[in-house]
Each structure stands twice: as structure tokens, then as C-alpha cells.
Design a protein around this nucleic acid. Sequence first.
DNA 1: CAAATAGTGTCTTTCAGACAATATTGT
DNA 2: ACAATATTGTCTGAAAGACACTATTTG
Lengths: 231, 231
Amino acid sequence: MTVVEYRSAFPPVYVTVDIVLLTIRDDQLHVLMIKRGSKPWRGWWALPGGFIRQYEDLAAAARRELVEETGLMVEPVHLEQLGSFGAPSRDPRARTVSVAYLGILPGLPFPTAGTDATSAEWRPVEEVLDRRMPFDHHTILSSAVERARGKLEYTPIATSFVGNAFTIGELRRVYEIVWGRPLDPGNFHRKLRSAADFIESTGTTREGGRGRPASLYRRGSATVLNPPILR
Amino acid sequence: MTVVEYRSAFPPVYVTVDIVLLTIRDDQLHVLMIKRGSKPWRGWWALPGGFIRQYEDLAAAARRELVEETGLMVEPVHLEQLGSFGAPSRDPRARTVSVAYLGILPGLPFPTAGTDATSAEWRPVEEVLDRRMPFDHHTILSSAVERARGKLEYTPIATSFVGNAFTIGELRRVYEIVWGRPLDPGNFHRKLRSAADFIESTGTTREGGRGRPASLYRRGSATVLNPPILR
DNA sequence: CAAATAGTGTCTTTCAGACAATATTGT
DNA sequence: ACAATATTGTCTGAAAGACACTATTTG
């Protein structure tokens, strides 16, 4: 680690990235949390994140921190900037500005162990939001969940929560869990199939479920849903 | 101006704010531009902005820079964060991260002269986007316009473009100009009046126009439009 | 067969959009 | 009267939501 010396007429600022990585496990929205090992808020569960490097893009820093802090070997299917949080009081050490990212991962079985072993954990969002969090992470997590809820309406973001091939029922469960309310299966089915280029059929079906086997679909080419799936 | 000396294991970053201030003049969407007086891109027209101060909130920095650089004596009716732009190559001087803001002002007569006199100017957005701009300001302006277009659909943001009291026709013109297409006056009128708490009547009318005097309204309490005004 | 899930059909209500019709002003 | 703008009315088609119904599987 090199020490950099610096001179300027303007105050230097530490820029960090924080990542809200969402997934669905056990029919609940979960967020990836890490246990802080260093100074402020040591021992608290916090959002993964860290300082950006000199020649590193913001989104690249987010991806790097995810790997470093959580040992995730899967690239998030979806990663988008949420916004920046820079209240002067947000970090007692120094002036920091955090650029927050929202990531989404399918809830498939995959390794969670990080380099620091047991320091990363999936926690139910509802439970996490009920407790105090370090820095302004409560605000960041809230706005991430709100963003995800809104984007379900008019983007195909829901497909990021499921695997490469999925049934319409699985997609419906994503909507129900993120929005926190039940949806009519029949209407949802018709609506999805009529949304242009949202999903395309793979021709195969998923066996092994309890009822009639469902057709499998893959994500279509649409980036905006027309018509939208209204909340 | 004091010089600060600094030591750290992490690279210091300059954090700036850039503001896209939109208004409507002469039936065209305009953006406030300033003529750069210093080193990189000297003499070019750019978005107003500058370095944040040590103990200053991001939004506060945006408001301060607007006043300092453009001499505007009016607070923008609407100011929201657009996002952050931090590509390592965006500023040749040093690593910078810019937090961009979108502001909206009514197109009423008001002073434009800045402290640097003639250095601030309203320019048609269409024309500005046709030319090269300093830094990544072209990207920032594009995303600001796209954000404004989208937000017209489901927020009462359009009222920020007009005065305190306005007619439905004036509001329609805002939509037509920002969206770049004509809207049916009759349908728009009915739609606005049915959107819950979007606008409320003042009881008065506006005289002096060419046709039948229009009722005047003020902005209602709604923060989200239901149903939305679809593009 | 019962339970469970997938998928289709039908009906009602709401709303968007086209467009006609009426209302009220200035010239 | 005519032009211009505001406001209301009418009709058609698309889509949302409630809900009944059919289809296909496992236990």
C-alpha cells in the first residue's frame, strides 16, 4: 500500500462505493451484508463497499469490492448506479462521498463464503431495515429497495432475480415478493406474454413441480416494458 | 484560499457538482450554460458547477455554484440528483467525480446576469446537444433531458416549469415542448383534472389571451401522479 | 381421485385517443 | 362574423382486474 502525498486548494474527498446486492431466498428478499472488521462501526453488519482506486471506473470499483469483500464468484446479472450520498457527517473519519450501486443476483445455489470466510451473509431485507445500520446505509438500502420496486414496473429487471431459463410462475413470485402483495396468476400470465419482447419461449418445460409442468422462457430483447406491469 | 496538505493510503479525489438547469423560453427547452474562464476547456460553453466545500452537502454545493457562477437570484423550484460521473479520464487535471444535478426553473422574466457578467447564457438544448461539450457534459445533459422527459409522466415536475399560478394550456405546452410532440388539448385537459391532487383551482382566470380566458390553477399536493400522464 | 400449479376465457370497468361540439373571448 | 383558445361530450379500442374454467401433472 503506497502512501500518496497531496497538495491542493480544494479539500480532498474520499470516494467510496457501496453495493446493495439483492436476491431472493426462501421466498424473501435478501440483501448481502458484511461484518465490518475495521475502525468505525467495527463488528457491525454493513453494506459491502470500499474506496475507489486511482484509475478505476466507479462501476468497476463496485464489482471489485463485491469480489474482495464477499468472495462472490458470480457477476451480478444487473448492476446500476443508485445515487451518491455525501452528507458531511456521514463518516466521522473524514469527508467521504459514497456512490451507491444496486446489484441483483438470481437466488440459485452458489458459494457465499468470502476471503474473510464467514464475514459475508445474506439477510432478509425486512429484518435488516428494522435495525440500526452503520453510516447512512439505512437510507441507501431503503432507496435501493424502492428503486427495485419501481423498476419492476417498466423494465425487465425481474429476470435478473431468476436463472437463465425460468417459468412465468417463478417470475410472478419475484414480483409478489418484491412488491409484497399477491398477484392474480391468470392475469399476470396473459400480461407477460403480451408485453413485447419481454420473454421468449425456449420450447422446453420444467418437470418435477407439483402441478402441470410450466413452459420455460428466457429473457427477451426488451429494455423497456410496453405496456408496463403496473404495481 | 488556503492550501491543504494531505497524506493517505488512498488516492484523494476531487468531487465536483455539475448542474443542468432547464427552463422553457420561446417555446423551446433551454439549458443554462457558462463560459469557462479557466484552464481546461477555457473559452468553451459548459454546464455550471465546481468543487464541493469541506463541510457542505452535495445539494447545497449545487445551489451555491449556481448562484456563484450565474448570479441567479432565484432558487430552482426543483433540484434533484441525477447521478455521478467518474470515469478516470473525464478530467485531464486529476481524478474527479462529478455529482450531477437536474434543476428546473419557470421561464418567467428574471435576471440572468452573473457575477462574471455576460458569462452565463440560456441556450436551446437541441442546439447545445448538436455541438461538442467539455468533459462528459454531453452525457450529463442527455441524461438530464431523458430524466425530465420520464418524470413528466408520473410526477408533477411539469409545474416547476411554470409560474405559481398557471393554466392547463400552459402546462400542456410544457409537455409538448419537453416531449417534442403535440398533445390533444381536450384529452389533456380531462386527464389533468382527473389526476388526483395534481392541480387545484384558484378560482380566478387569466385574461388577455386570444381566446376564451382559461382558469388558473396552482400545484396540488400530489408527489406521484395517479393515473400517470403517459408519453 | 384430490391437490396443486399452468394456462385460457369472459365480463366489467377504466382509460387513452380521435374527434365533434360548445363556450367565451379579442379583432 | 371570424379566429383563437378553453372546455365538455361521445365514441372506439386497449388493457386491468375479478373470477370461472380447462389442462396436466404428482401423491
